[in-house]
Amino acid sequence: MSLPLFLKDIKNNIVLLLVFGILMSIYLSVIIYMYDPSGAGALMDMLSLLPVRLVNALGFPTVDTGLTGFIAGLYYGFLIYLFPMVYCIVLGNRLVAKWVYEGSFISLLSTPNSRIKIIVTQGAYMLFSIILLFSILYFVGIGVSENLFKGLLDISVFGKLNFSACLMTMAIGMICFFFSCIFNDTRLSLAFGAGIPVLFFLLNMLGGLSERTAFLKDYSLYSSFNGMNLVSGTVNAGTINSFFIMVILLLFAGSIAIFQFKRLPI
């Protein structure tokens, strides 16, 4: 880890983090605001107007009547894939491939820091910023819920939900980072770094359309995370989390190994 480089990463990318943090916080607050403790709310009415299959595809399954389940269904079912995915794609490309492509990476390597140290720093920023993003969501979620519906949010379950979603996003982030380390050209880095997460996203969505397409979900990383099941306790959070951690570690190690030995065009 190189501290000056890490600080530079923060300086360069803090605005990106804030934009996503604020957007996602607003969305989360609005969803919590729409919750109706008596059961049927305006959103329920709206969802009932849409075809069941579409609702399933969007990942809004049968909505739990509790606040935690409501949030899990509406927020951690669909949006939690989309927003952080875009964040990871943009950041992943910025952290390595962009500098290599522009040539400014040369400055980093003309200092007494090994490639490993530099790449570890860049990867660490990716993971750190995702943790920060989910910490923001965690505290905003609790804050807004406690203000509007005191005592209704199951904080420990909400925490677990956030923790798993955070690990899932870190895994996606590492996919983007991995391709950013492989390719010297930002076009290729973006094509793979964005293509694969988007493919996972589509597979997950199509898999929710009907019984016959359900098998598609098996090919998507996103399907390992299911907010509703985490809330109802029908899945073992430990298994899912360890799977994500394994993916993160493997991709991080792969990124370092590839970047250390590759020829740089700078």
Binding site: N12, E102, G103, S104, I106, S107, L109, S110, T111, P112, N113, S114, R115, K117, I266
Partner: peptide, 20 residues
Amino acid sequence: TASIQKILGYVPGEIAFFEE
């Protein structure tokens, strides 16, 4: 490379710094 860089100064042929 890291040990070499301690005692080395380098002017690259193509200059590309952090533009911002």
